[in-house]
Design a binder for these strands. Structure first.
Lengths: 176, 176
DNA sequence: ACTAACATGTAATCTGTTACATGATTGA
DNA sequence: TCAATCATGTAACAGATTACATGTTAGT
């Protein structure tokens, strides 16, 4: 996320954190102890450079710039997204947020295809004596709620992915 | 999750892990290094007791039993669910999965009400120069995908929560 | 005078991941 | 014989959270 937001332009840590909080769960706080050490690691890895600037009243700002190496690192990580980055919704949404930065269209499609493949595998959250339970077998009202939500978001995302991956052949330029 | 699954009956670590993997992301592996230390912490906290049993071929099983204290701990944590447990979808779904275990109906409704309250607050994932962007202002196709999915699941979950919280007054027993 | 927002950091603690370590049984 | 499943653990490392620490400016 840090690399992604910095690819859009330089930012300092404080602004960065607010953007991250918005995207990543829009309610999940990112503490100082998370962001500043993370920045330090990326600077050490030559992905970022810092430039001092006078702050908007307050301490000196350290404006962070993505290096060429940082940009490559980001593109590689997005292009190679797999495993948890595909299966965990929160992680995948972060990948999606910056996927445009992957230059090759085929690479971007491959990422979407991996996600679609995952979403089309049958899911079961609950089981009884080892056997997976189907939605209509679940008595617990709260567990039914989990399924209702999961099924709705799964369906919506799959529809969107299909739209992206199999563009309507009949009339090529028919986006609203 | 450990306390929750053990509230349904005794299990040993290995079974527990499989149940956890199913519920929690159904694709997120839970490693030995996560589950066994976690069990150890709970035993130390008097939430669990262990009983040795011969394994199904292989090492000795340690069957885990929830103590009375563990059951109270679980009920308290579910009842008091707030913050990340309400805002993070993955965490909230775990709360939902075991919410039936909270004895008082009013407490259970309060948890659902907090989630609904959160879901009804306006969301924005992206911003430009500090101003939040609305769905139709987002050009990036992948970011639109994030919104499409988020809006669909938000809507479905809200509908379900409303159904739970404001039961249809006209005919009380009208579930399909 | 106090609080909120701006701005960056460190230290202690806890938790998760990965890899290592052990060992039995079942089926190909 | 080899892999998979069953079954439980530890150790090294990385990362997140919390609390601590500092200091300015703007508004009430």
């Amino acid at each position: 996320m840090i690399l992604g937001f910095l690819a859009e332009g330089p930012l300092h840590g404080y602004e960065l954190r607010r953007k991250m909080e918005q995207l990543h769960g829009y309610a999940r706080a990112i503490s100082d102890g998370t962001i500043y050490p993370a920045i330090r690691r990326l600077v050490k890895a030559d992905a970022l450079t810092e430039q001092l600037e006078p702050g908007q009243g307050a301490a000196l700002r350290k404006t962070l710039h993505l290096t060429e190496h940082g940009r490559e690192l980001l593109a590689t990580r997005l292009r190679d997204a797999d495993g948890h980055d595909i299966t965990d919704p929160a992680r995948f949404f972060v990948v999606l947020a910056f996927l445009s930065l992957v230059p090759d269209e085929a690479d971007r499609r491959a990422v979407l295809a991996r996600r679609l493949d995952f979403l089309e595998r049958p899911v079961s959250f609950f089981s009884d004596h080892g056997r997976p339970l189907r939605a209509n077998q679940i008595e617990d009202p709260y567990r039914r709620g989990i399924l209702v939500s999961a099924i709705a978001s799964n369906r919506a995302e799959r529809a969107w992915l299909h739209e992206q991956l199999d563009p309507p052949v009949t009339s090529p330029k028919e986006n609203s």
